[in-house]
Design a protein around this nucleic acid. Structure first.
Lengths: 345, 345
DNA sequence: ACCGTATACGAAAACGGTTTCGTGTTGATA
DNA sequence: TATCAACACGAAACCGTTTTCGTATACGGT
C-alpha cells in the first residue's frame, strides 16, 4: 500500500527544505533550474498531488459547493442537479448533495453540517415543511456569515439572496390559453394539496387565462391531490362526475395518472379531453398518448444557479462592494404532443 | 457580517490558552469546573462550531464519501444514490457526487480530484466507456493508496474491492419462466447494443429459461437498441415483421416504448403480447397498461454499499488484518402488473 | 579589500484544530 | 517546614500547504 506522498517526504528525500519543494513545483523563478528539474522529476515519479484539505485550510476556500434539495428521485430536481454539477465541475468545483426529504429539521441539520467550512456556497430548493413553517433562520444565519446562497424554484422573499425561478404564472396562463384557443371551455386544474410550493402561481395563471376569456372560475373544477400518496379514488370520482374537456396539471405524474383514469373510463385523449402537465420529463415523452407539458428547463436553471453562485464566491474574496442580489427568471416553454393535438370538434 | 469564530478568538477574549478552550469544549476533566462553564457559555453565545476542514486535516478523515455514477437523470442510479445518502448521513458522512456521463476520461478526472484528500472512500458504478476500454488503472491506484472502494451494479472482476450487484441472470431467468408458464412461447428480448453492462447477464438468464423449456433460441428474436438515442423505426420494423407473444426488456424505457409501438399497431397488451421490463420505476407504475418489471431494489443497494464502505473506512484505521473483499448480491424481485396479467388463450 | 546585489534557498508563521507533555500553584502530609 | 501529589492550565508539536521574509554565497565593480 503506497501511502500518499507529501512535500515533507520529497524535501527529506532530496535534502532540501519544504518551501523549496513547494516553490519548485510551482515553477517559481526563485529556485534554480537544476533544483527545479530534480524536484519536479521526483514528484512526477512518485505521482505527487497536493492535499486538497491542506490547501482548503490555507486558502479558506474548499472548491466545494453544497446542494440541498427536497428529493433526489424526482425528475425536475435531478435535471437541475445535472446542470449544477456540469457547470461546477467545469469550473473545478465539486458538489456535495444533501437531501432534505421535505423535512425542515433535516434541512437545518444539513446546512449546519456543511456551513462549518465544508463548502464555499449553497444552492438549494426549500423543503415543503420549511415553506409551511415559514422559518428561514437557518438561511439567514448562513448568509450573515457571508456564505453565498442561491435559491431555485422553491424560493422565499424573506431571505435576501440570489434566486432562480421560472415564470410559473405565465407558463400556466399560456398553457390554458392554448387549450382555450383549441376550443376547450370546461378546463379543470389538478394541483397539490394546499397549493404548496409553486402550485399557487400556476393556479394564478390558470385563473388569469379563464378570466381573460370570460370563463367561469369554479372551485369545483379544481382537484387537490396529496403530494406523494396515491389517491386513485378521489381522482376517479372527480372525473366521473364532471363534464371536462381539458385539464391542466401542476406536474406530469398527476397528468399521466389522470389520463389513465380518463382513458379507462372510455374517454379519448385528446379527442374528448386534452391534457397539459408541468415538468417535461420521461413520463411525458413516453406516456400514451404522449403528454404536452411545460418544460421547466431544469438543466438551464441548475447551470444558471451554479454560475451565479460561483461568481459570488469568486468575487466575494474581493472587496466589499455593495451586495447586489438578483432574481433570474427562466422562461418555461410548452412542448406540445399528442395529448393536445387538434381542436375540439 | 458575523465572521465565523475560532478557538483563538475565544481564547483571546477570555484570556486563556487555545488548548484550554479546546479541552473545555470537550468537557475534559483536566479543566476546572468554573473555567469550563465560562468557556462553554461564551462558545454557545457566539455559536462556535469547529471548522470541519481543520479537523479533517488533523484527523486525516474527512467524513465525506465520493460517489461516481454514469448518469444522475436515471431512475435506478437515483434510487441507489438515495440509499447511499440516507445511510451515510445517518452515520455523519456527507456525499460528494460526480457524474461520469458514461465517459472514461471524466471518470478518471473525477476520481483524481476526489482522491487527493477530499473523501474517505468511493462508491461507484463504472462508466460505459470504462467497461468497453477495460482499463481500470484509476481504480487500482486508488485502492493501492488504501482508499476503500465499493463498486455497484456495473462492476468488474479486474479490481479487488467490495461489490454490490443484483442477480441479473436469475432475475431474467425467473421473468422468462413466468412468461412461459402463462403460455407464451414466442418470447423476444429487447436489449442494449452490444449487450453493454448488465445486459449480457440478463440475456443469459433469458437463454437459460428458453433452453430449459426446449424453446428455440433465435437471434432474430433479439432487438438491440442504442443506449440513449431514439430508434423508433428499428423497433417498429422489429415488431411488425415477427410473431411475438411476449417480450423481456432490459429496462423500463425500452419496455414502455415497445408497448406503445405494439399498441399503436393494434395489438393488445397483455392479451396478444406480454411485457416485462427491468428497473421498477415510475414509468412502470404509470404506463398504460402498467408494466410488470424487475425491481432492482436500488435503495437497498445503495444502503448496502454505503454500509460496506463505512465499515471499511472505520475499520481501516485499525490494524492490518488481512483485507477481505466481499460481493453482496441483492435479490431482484419481479413486480407483476397489468402487462403480464392472465395467460395466453 | 570593500561594498552592493543578485541568486538560491531556508526558517517560520499561518490556516484551525487536537493532543501530549510539561509546569506553576495549592493543599495535605510527614 | 520540607515534600509531594493533585489540580488546572499552557506551550508546543502536528496535520500539509503557502508565502513572506531573512540570509548565506558568490560575483562584479571600484
Amino acid at each position: 500500500m503506497k501511502r500518499k506522498i507529501t512535500l515533507k517526504h520529497i524535501a527529506r528525500e532530496l535534502d532540501v527544505s519544504i518551501s523549496t519543494v513547494s516553490k519548485a513545483l510551482k515553477n517559481s523563478e526563485e529556485i534554480g533550474q537544476d533544483t527545479k528539474e530534480k524536484i519536479q522529476a521526483f514528484a512526477k515519479l512518485y505521482n505527487y498531488r497536493p492535499n486538497n484539505i491542506a490547501i482548503s485550510l490555507k486558502n479558506k476556500r474548499t472548491k466545494n459547493i453544497g446542494v440541498i434539495i427536497p428529493d433526489i428521485v424526482h425528475h425536475f430536481f435531478t435535471t437541475v442537479f445535472r446542470g449544477i454539477e456540469q457547470y461546477a465541475n467545469n469550473k473545478g468545483y465539486n458538489v456535495i448533495v444533501c437531501v432534505s426529504d421535505e423535512s425542515f429539521d433535516k434541512e437545518v441539520i444539513n446546512m449546519e453540517m456543511l456551513a462549518n467550512g465544508s463548502i464555499d456556497g449553497f444552492i438549494m430548493a426549500l423543503a415543503g415543511e420549511t415553506q409551511l413553517k415559514n422559518d428561514f433562520n437557518h438561511l439567514k444565519e448562513v448568509t450573515e456569515q457571508g456564505i453565498p446562497l442561491v435559491l431555485f424554484d422553491r424560493v422565499t422573499e424573506d431571505v435576501q439572496c440570489d434566486k432562480v425561478i421560472i415564470n410559473d404564472e405565465e407558463a400556466a396562463y399560456q398553457a390554458v390559453k392554448k387549450l382555450i384557443a383549441s376550443g376547450r371551455r370546461k378546463i379543470a386544474l389538478v394541483t397539490t394539496e394546499g397549493y404548496l410550493n409553486v402550485s399557487a402561481k400556476r393556479a394564478e395563471g390558470y385563473f388569469r387565462a379563464l378570466k381573460e376569456h370570460h370563463l367561469p372560475i369554479d372551485k369545483d373544477m379544481i382537484l387537490e391531490l396529496p403530494y406523494q400518496k396515491d389517491n386513485e379514488k378521489k381522482s376517479e370520482e372527480f372525473f366521473r362526475n364532471r363534464s371536462i374537456d381539458a385539464v391542466l396539471c401542476v406536474n406530469e405524474i398527476f397528468a399521466v395518472k389522470c389520463m389513465g383514469i380518463v382513458q379507462r373510463s372510455g374517454k379519448r385523449v385528446p379527442d374528448d379531453i386534452a391534457f397539459i402537465g408541468f415538468t417535461d420529463g420521461i413520463l411525458s415523452r413516453l406516456s400514451t398518448p404522449t403528454l404536452s407539458s411545460v418544460d421547466q428547463h431544469g438543466e438551464l436553471m441548475g447551470e444558471t444557479a451554479a454560475r451565479m453562485l460561483i461568481e459570488k464566491i469568486e468575487r466575494d474574496h474581493d472587496q466589499e462592494e455593495e451586495e447586489i442580489f438578483q432574481t433570474r427568471i427562466i422562461s418555461a416553454t410548452l412542448v406540445e404532443r399528442e395529448s393536445t393535438l387538434g381542436s375540439l370538434k
